[in-house]
């Protein structure tokens, strides 16, 4: 599929889906169940507002969502208490599939949500969004409801609704996207450059896709999803929705360095598995950063290993719970 054609047919603005009642009717007609997963780690300042708004607007006013679950990595603040107080189902990732070896990371929470939640569609929304609004869910879920061929809908942000024809305004992602991921995609997967913000933490996906793809548990989860879904189903399986502005806390450049390091590990591993590059040497697992203290330069080292969870369909407990047969490559 050509990028231009895909941009035209599979890129939406959330305002196209303002009629939530219509989406609810169509969802009910298809007998779909939709689950919202909010992965958390110390998000007490923003989690309450997200839950109140989604519960009130998208469960009670318009029953688009069938469940809202917080899956937590072990918050030390009052995230869990606040989430419970506002009526969310709260789960510790470590208590889901507890017989598996212990892992910690956002990707782990997202992966375990596939087992824990019951939806045919799971929509993931990060917990640190200050300007949360129902559009963050209905804007992502609606393309899946109305377009059966779409399997994976990604959010992007901050594009003006109207500007003069002569004005060209760059539209893109954050620093890691523009400096690392987009150049890598341009080199190896040019079609995927059409996704304006490949690292955005908000996306809605069909269960029959989620259960068939592996999940890096750390920084690489979004990048790996895009590559794996693209490989199995092609660009046509994706859609993206403009959700206008997303207000969240900014990360320091040093944190972004760690993110980029994790993404590189995931990316290179995939290139090797796909025979796009050969004979990769043993890669380091330590990110070296530097800081100055009392006029002395010192090294700060971070051990970052991007463990991956296998496709959920390969987990016997999951197959039993959801009455699935053995995994088959499609």
């Amino acid at each position: 599929m050509k990028i231009e054609a895909w941009l035209k047919s599979n890129t939406f603005h959330h305002s196209a889906f303002w009629d939530v009642m219509q989406a609810v009717k169509e969802k009910e007609r298809q007998n779909l169940k939709i689950s919202l997963c909010i992965p958390t780690l110390n998000e007490e300042k923003t989690i309450g507002k997200e839950i109140v708004i989604f519960r009130s607007e998208l469960m009670e006013r318009y029953p688009l969502l069938d469940e809202i679950a917080v899956i937590d990595s072990g918050s030390e603040d009052s995230t869990l208490e606040v989430a419970k107080a506002f009526g969310a189902d709260v789960h510790l990732a470590s208590e889901i599939l507890p017989d598996l070896d212990a892992r910690t990371g956002k990707g782990e929470n997202l992966w375990k949500a596939i087992y824990q939640l019951k939806g045919d569609i799971i929509v993931y929304v990060d917990a640190d969004i200050k300007n949360i609004h129902p559009r963050f869910v209905y804007g992502l879920v609606s393309p899946l409801i109305y377009r059966p061929e779409v399997k994976y809908v990604k959010a992007f942000y901050d594009r003006p609704l109207a500007f003069s024809e002569k004005q060209v305004r760059p539209s893109g992602g954050g620093r890691v996207t523009e400096i690392l991921v987009r150049p890598l995609f341009s080199l190896f997967f040019p079609d995927l450059t059409a996704l304006i913000q490949p690292l955005s933490g908000e996306y809605a996906v069909r269960r029959d896709v989620l259960e068939k793809i592996p999940f890096p548990i750390g920084y690489g989860v979004e990048t790996s999803h895009l590559i794996d879904v693209y490989n199995k189903w092609g660009l046509g399986a994706f859609a993206q929705t403009d959700l206008d502005q997303r207000v969240h806390r900014n990360q320091e450049t040093r944190s972004l360095g760690r993110m980029a390091f994790g993404i590189m590990q995931t990316f290179l591993r995939r290139l090797e598995n796909m025979d796009k590059i050969k004979d990769l040497p043993e890669m380091g697992k330590t990110l070296h950063q530097f800081q100055v203290r009392d006029r002395n330069y010192e090294q700060v080292q971070f051990e970052i290993t991007e463990h991956e969870r296998p496709p959920m369909i390969s987990i016997p407990a999951y197959r039993k719970k959801f009455n699935r047969g053995e995994a088959h490559e499609s």
């Binding site: 109140v52 009130s56 009670e60 506002f86 009526g87 609004h133």
Partner: peptide
């Protein structure tokens, strides 16, 4: 409560 708080947040923003 949830309806009231949601209305407050959404109109207040």
């Amino acid at each position: 409560r949830e309806i009231l708080l949601t209305n407050l947040v959404m109109v207040g923003e």
